[in-house]
């Protein structure tokens, strides 16, 4: 029972695994961030992720069309956009209660992905998945190279999306409009901004990114599809948006913290870390990331002040 692995080796491996595991959370949470900044709480992320996870793997597998993974990704984005459109129609046009509509969309995604899975695939789909790409030069860097630059393309994309999201929110007309309609849609409307159009676009973008999140979970991270494989990750993504106080950087920090805590508890199990000679019960360790998230949420009081004031509130002209 002796081992030659050093703490540095473990840290490098854990860091790399954390980045990969954070990828689906990051896509879904950034998408949800746009929807929420525009004033729409979309609890359908879980359902959209499932549909994205199924459709992408299905089209690239031999049970489907043996398509290139890029096609799988595109299909997931399209499905996400359609489900985002459904959410936007129900919450913006019909002005239905957003929490309930979102749960409905999640139930729909769970049911529909299960149904399609059974009818079209009849058993676990193995897709092979997306290969890791070593970025030239950078991947040869000591330590950093194997942590940051030996990932699949979706992980690179997810992390690139963070500064891009910040830039879009702060430096584009659309981003300004998203922030405005989420805070004070009456004001935006009176300035000639089309509130419904902005919310539709933000929710649909959120759907696209949730679809990508699902695809990254199935195609890239696991390489398989199984019923309900998201296992609540969509809801964690929604929680991460609150956790991150609607800021892309802090959402990223949250996704990393959650994934790192989860990876840490696995390492504690794997390396059989003992406290005073006694093994720590796995059930206790598995709770760690969730407990940590709750603890941080309790202390992150700033969050309340940044919440989009019009979140969950449908907009109707002349209401004030």
């Amino acid at each position: 029972m002796e081992s030659s692995r050093t703490l540095l080796d473990i840290l490098i491996a854990a860091s790399g695994l954390t980045l990969a595991a954070a990828t689906p959370f990051l896509f879904a949470a950034l998408g949800e961030l746009f929807a929420q900044r525009s004033g729409v709480l979309n609890l359908g992320v879980e359902g959209i992720m499932l549909m994205g996870a199924f459709t992408s793997v299905f089209v690239i597998s031999d049970k489907g069309f043996n398509a290139h993974p890029a096609v799988g990704l595109l299909v997931a984005m399209l499905v996400g956009a359609l489900m985002g459109l459904m959410m936007a129609f129900v919450s913006v046009t019909l002005q239905a209660e957003q929490g309930i509509s979102g749960i409905g969309l999640t139930l729909f995604g769970q049911g529909m992905s299960t149904l399609l899975f059974r009818v079209l695939a009849a058993g676990v789909i193995v897709a092979g998945g997306v290969e890791k790409i070593d970025l030239p030069v950078l991947s040869n860097l000591p330590v950093l190279g194997s942590i940051f630059f030996h990932q699949d393309i979706l992980t690179y994309a997810a992390f690139a999306l963070v500064p891009i999201s910040v830039w879009v929110l702060n430096r584009t007309t659309w981003g300004l409009q998203v922030r405005a309609v989420g805070q004070n849609p009456q004001a935006a409307d009176s300035m000639g901004v089309n509130v419904a159009r902005v919310r539709y676009s933000a929710v649909i973008l959120g759907g696209v990114l949730a679809g990508v999140a699902g695809a990254s979970l199935s195609m890239a991270l696991t390489g398989v599809f199984q019923e309900n494989m998201t296992a609540g990750r969509g809801f964690i993504a929604v929680a991460l948006v609150y956790f991150g106080g609607w800021s892309p950087w802090k959402v990223m920090a949250g996704a990393l913290l959650f994934s790192a805590a989860n990876n840490l508890q696995i390492w504690v199990q794997v390396l059989d870390v003992r406290v005073a000679g006694a093994a720590i019960p796995p059930n206790l360790l598995i709770m760690l990331p969730y407990v940590l998230t709750i603890v941080v949420l309790i202390f992150a009081r700033e969050r309340q002040r940044r919440e989009p004031a019009a979140l969950t509130k449908p907009f109707e002209r002349g209401e004030n």
């Binding site: 584009t172 659309w174 300004l176 922030r179 004001a187 009176s190 300035m191 000639g192 004031a309």
Partner: peptide, 26 residues
Amino acid sequence: QHFMLVPTLTVTENVALGIRSGGPLL
């Protein structure tokens, strides 16, 4: 009567919100 301003935006951003001919970049 009830001001049509977005409290979480700066004064400049509030004014910029009303510009429709500015293209996609602010």
